[in-house]
Design a protein around this nucleic acid. Sequence first.
DNA 1: TGAAACTATGCAAACGTTTGCAGAGCCGGT
DNA 2: ACCGGCTCTGCAAACGTTTGCATAGTTTCA
Lengths: 329, 329
Amino acid sequence: MPVTIQDVAREAGVSVSTVSRAFTVPDLVKEETRQHVLQTAERLGYRPNRAARGLITGKTGNFGVIVPDLSNPFFPTVLKGVQARAREADYAVFLADCDENPAEEMALVQAMAKQVDGVILCSSRMTPSQLDRVVGTTSLVFINRQVRDSPAVLMGPAGGMRQAIDHLAALGHRRVAYLNGPKTSWSNRERRRGLRQAARHDMEIVELGPFAPRFEAGPHAADLVIAEGVTAIIAFNDLLALGVMSRLADRGVAVPEEMSVVGFDDIPMAGMATPPLTTVAMQNERAGRAAVDLLVNLLTVSGADAGDLRRDLECQLIVRASTTVPARS
Amino acid sequence: MPVTIQDVAREAGVSVSTVSRAFTVPDLVKEETRQHVLQTAERLGYRPNRAARGLITGKTGNFGVIVPDLSNPFFPTVLKGVQARAREADYAVFLADCDENPAEEMALVQAMAKQVDGVILCSSRMTPSQLDRVVGTTSLVFINRQVRDSPAVLMGPAGGMRQAIDHLAALGHRRVAYLNGPKTSWSNRERRRGLRQAARHDMEIVELGPFAPRFEAGPHAADLVIAEGVTAIIAFNDLLALGVMSRLADRGVAVPEEMSVVGFDDIPMAGMATPPLTTVAMQNERAGRAAVDLLVNLLTVSGADAGDLRRDLECQLIVRASTTVPARS
DNA sequence: TGAAACTATGCAAACGTTTGCAGAGCCGGT
DNA sequence: ACCGGCTCTGCAAACGTTTGCATAGTTTCA
């Protein structure tokens, strides 16, 4: 039923080699025959079998993406970038969601390894020892995780954190809470690092947490924050920030009048919240695309091209309505 | 470098056939040798090459999922279900996002066809004629779209719509607006159908739209609604509902006191909005799983098992804080 | 004791490609 | 007239599996 290269060859009156070459190395076959072959192929609806091709070339034309949790709105956006760029580069993408489970993530990489030319690990939750076991099984590119000299695209939050701090300082805040994310998270470590770098003598930072990076953790965080007597909050991510705002509303603390709130990620709902959330936007989609670029680069240039193994993407503070000058005490 | 079945055979001192059988038809090989083979395979880190296997069996062990837009939070949740169930059934999933573009969607199906055993089309945007061209190229399962007698899992909104109407009626609303989604959308047609079925003599329905199923379309819709003088709104989906609420807030119309709002989908941010949105919850994740079940069923049982080609999932009204009794006029 | 029936294994062909090698035809230079 | 080189094409081997057929060994039963 499926039409193979043989069918095309027979129909076109040439050998299979010629058909194959007409597709893969066009300049090796006479223009005239080539056109003929292409037309017959088109007419028969021929599509090369990538599996068979992969068998001999050793390349599959696929790669994998593993994300910790599809229901975290951060990931679909980077996935979208990965997906788009992959299609442009004529790759197909395998998707897997490891449910925030490092062991599962490792298993997935191993399962994928044979079917793909490389894997993009998005905010990988694996431990270093788990990573050691998978590095080398296939080409890996990381997003938002730095592991030795593996290629990675990083959305370093330091710049965004500085902008957030400066923004709050300019508004007049002098005592600000930072709500930590998961303590094993690379992102949280980087955000804290950014926080320390941005430290100012005229502002006191109160660290709270760690909290799960989810809406549900917000209320607990909010209660702790209120007790601290700060005038502004920087949350590890938007989900947490939104959870906090929800609880603040319940407790009658007006945002932004009595409490300014800043998030991280600029997930779609950040702009839809009431009040719309001031947040640090990551270039997720571009990160996805960049990861693909890194990967294809890694696969095509053979040698140790120590060049651009790493891509750093700036982030950007987006000021919306959840921040303003602190209330007079 | 990669370890093949040959390596295992040599190392274990048996033929490749035996190794192959030890994995695929365990009862054809003596338990003792089988254990031996399995251990050597494990020791060498052997993983069967699915492409090679697929070449001969005609099955790839993969399937594809195509969604219209990953940044619509509705889809990642069903994707999550697909993904999880697929892994349980030992399938790998290809993901593609067609950017709401029907032509692109068709091209994607065709491109995938050779690499997968079947494709799940989520809220397909294809025209009937486009569908005709792809039906038959590979096994298809639809989610939220009914096309002839193709297998499909449908989240029929009729029940949810009735619940929504009854809920609003019970609160005392007598004039309610329905905000249409895209008019080519199966979901919108079904929701309207549910609306008519749920019609009551004591309630007047005002239809508006169509609107894009996005937050950005909300403000426009909200302005129209206000002019209509209704006391409650049922929106095509949550995104639209949230956009409406945002605008209502801007225009000083209090939700729910002056205007009740009901959405559809129960996307994550519905529960996080202020006020939390009353909405009709779909069983997205279950829908994803069901689609996979349908597909594997379709692939394993050969004959025309006219049995369960269709799966209907009930939906459920979730009452939150965006609906209440109408203000006294 | 011998045939029949199993059981466990190996051999080799097949799946749909790509690609090294070789041959055929042609052109230009001597 | 011959040779070297170039251009185009075909043959056949390979990729890593699965599987029909054959074979050798073992058991069962009359």
